[in-house]
Design a protein around this nucleic acid. Structure first.
Length: 567
RNA sequence: GCUCCUGUAACUCAGCUUGGAUAGAGUGCCAGCCUUCUAAGCUGGAAGUCGUAGGUUCAAAUCCUACCAGGAGCACCA
């Protein structure tokens, strides 16, 4: 629709189509028109008053079947589109509505979720998981071929710590009963021991762990593990198996899937090989104690191998990136992690570039803010965690209660999971979010259940109309004199493809979440003021309701939220 | 100390990329609406120094500079 106006204007003014597109806006209220073209830019070019230009243009522009009326309001040229023409287009849409062909089969690897083995998934892990899943869906919908990788933190100092704790303090019965809880207890106990070692004047970043007795024990354990010590290896495997079971439960509940699940440990050797390569080429340097680091022009230096020659996070990341490129030849790879890792990823990308891997400029880091609870950040070290599984369970329980209370139908799991996903996805990723039970368990207003409810309401109309179909035989619809609610619903629906495109370009699902809410709102206003069944406009309105159903369903699909026919 | 992010109604947030017409939602609060397709809904109301101060511009929440406040990074952690 917008395109028609752009094309029309392009014939009469000396601006490129792209320039016109940027200028066109939507007036503050619909009485002023559907689209507006401000003449300020032209006035500068032609050195005439903007009002005069608007007037001149209004007279020059021809009438078309799509455009009903053009009004001038000061320097603005306001277009009133032919709503029937608009409506005609919308009710024709099918289930592919909004799908794009931006990607044209391009491969895009998305690395997301990536919880650490040995630690439970807590509310802080939810953003990477949900955001990554949504980005997978958005890319798929936009015509890309997305590959989701869950890159588990199955190795690293935290594993060393956990094995030390496991050998010292394991309670076997507790492990049998609730492995996740027992592993958490062990980890927290270790960290508190480590913390008591900290001496005054060591508050500076990292200082406290440099010569810490307990941290050193963990480092030794990690070394042992890398060397293939059998006993250590066995404990490690046991921890991994417990953790994976826990993770899988959560992923199943959330309906999140991956194409590949690999541990970081798999890439230690490849990473080390690259590090030694770098050393040979003179890209990396060696400390007297054997630690290897790389320096940059504009970033702080990065250690890429510990002095005891064990691999660290970045070592494995170097290896993993190279192996992935070899395997997938991706056009782009997105890392979805906490924004605090931004420096780490910038260093990683530069290292790969220095090593001569040109694919390094296909790598992107999507950072997001932290999840806070009250004034605290989730910290596994201190045992300050709200388990993701508990959050999901509690929300599903609440959904069950609501269903009972309202005496309606619906799937509590779908409602609960939808509520959680939506409450996180609706915020711009860059911002921190405050987790509060009050907000997450609120199912009214700007919430997941509100969106699902709108869909169920629409479905209900369709169901009823099918039952009473025998009575009303008027199958051929006339597009009536449209009400303002119908018009705004139609307009909202028509925005969907642009919204998908914007979300894909900006790697930001919150754009879709916000749109979904506006769409549902628009539908509920329509629902309230326009009767469908039995009305003269029934046939047309049924089509409109169906167009809405398709659009909201697709929109929620992109957020990983399912819909129900009844709730 | 250096670098990055955030600051819009009591609370949670859209809008800022690409400057434009009276700054929008939701929650909460107040007042209404269920013998009509699901009230997890709808209608109306009160509520704002767009962090502060400058600058650019015909026009600034939006761009630039400085400052203030909050968060984060600058580990041989991940």
């Amino acid at each position: 629709m917008k395109q028609i106006i752009i094309d029309l204007l392009a014939k009469y003014i000396k601006l490129k189509k792209e320039e016109i597109e940027k200028l066109i806006e939507i007036p503050p209220n619909s009485e002023m028109g559907d689209y507006a073209f401000p003449c300020f830019v032209l006035s500068k070019k032609e050195k005439k008053a903007p009002n005069a230009i608007a007037e001149h243009l209004a007279n020059k522009l021809p009438k078309t079947k799509e455009i009903e009326k053009i009004e001038i309001k000061g320097p603005y040229l306001n277009f009133f589109v032919n709503k029937r023409y608009f409506a005609e287009e919308i009710i024709k849409l099918n289930s592919n509505f909004g799908k794009l062909n931006l990607g044209k089969g391009k491969k895009i690897v998305i690395d997301f979720s990536g919880p650490n083995i040995g630690k439970p998934m807590h509310i802080g892990h939810i953003r990477s998981t949900i955001l990554g899943d949504s980005l997978m869906r958005i890319h798929n919908f936009s015509g890309y071929n997305p590959i989701g990788i869950n890159y588990l933190g199955d190795i690293g100092l935290h594993i060393g710590k956990l094995i030390v704790a496991y050998e010292l303090w394991l309670d076997k019965d507790a492990l049998k009963k609730d492995p996740i809880a027992e592993l958490l207890r062990l980890y927290v106990k270790f960290c508190s021991k480590e913390k008591t070692e900290v001496q005054e004047g060591q508050e500076e970043a990292g200082e406290e762990f440099k010569n810490n007795e307990w941290t050193n024990k963990a480092r030794e354990k990690l070394k042992l593990l890398e060397l293939g010590d059998k006993k250590t290896h066995k404990i490690w495997q046991e921890i991994i198996s417990h953790s994976k079971k826990g993770f899988d439960r959560v992923y199943t509940m959330m309906n999140v899937n991956f194409n590949e699940t690999t541990g970081q440990s798999l890439f230690s050797i490849k990473g080390k090989t690259e590090v030694f390569n770098a050393l040979k080429k003179g890209i990396a340097k060696r400390e007297s104690d054997g630690a290897i680091y790389i320096e940059f022009d504009n970033l702080p230096k990065k250690y890429v191998l510990r002095s005891n020659s064990t691999a660290s996070y970045i070592t494995q990341d170097i290896g993993a990136a190279i192996e992935r490129y070899k395997k997938y030849k991706f056009d782009k790879m997105i890392y979805v992690t906490d924004f605090r890792q931004e420096l780490h990823f910038n260093q990683l990308f530069q290292i790969l570039k220095k090593l001569g891997y040109d694919f390094s400029d296909k790598l992107v880091h999507v950072g997001f803010g932290t999840v806070n609870f009250g004034k605290e950040i989730m910290a596994t070290r201190q045992g300050k965690v709200i388990l993701l599984e508990d959050v999901l369970k509690k929300t599903i329980d609440k959904s069950q209660q609501e269903i009972k209370k309202r005496k309606t139908k619906g799937n509590a799991e779908i409602i609960g999971v939808g509520a959680i996903k939506y409450s996180f996805l609706k915020n711009d990723p860059v911002k921190d979010v405050n987790f509060s039970w009050e907000h997450s368990l609120n199912f009214e207003g700007d919430s997941g259940p509100y969106l699902q409810y709108s869909y169920a309401r629409a479905s209900s109309i369709i169901r009823k109309s099918e039952k009473s179909k025998l009575k009303s035989k008027s199958k051929n619809y006339n597009i009536p004199e449209l009400t303002s609610q119908e018009i705004s619903l139609i307009k909202k629906i028509s925005e969907f493809p642009e919204v998908v495109e914007k979300a894909e370009k900006q790697l930001n699902p919150s754009i879709i979440a916000n749109y979904s809410f506006q769409l549902a709102q628009s539908f509920n206003e329509f629902y309230h003021s326009c009767k469908v069944i039995g009305d003269d406009c029934e046939a047309f309105r049924l089509k409109l309701v169906n167009a809405f159903r398709t659009t909201i369903k697709n929109s929620l699909y992109l957020l990983g939220i399912e819909v129900m026919e009844e709730m």
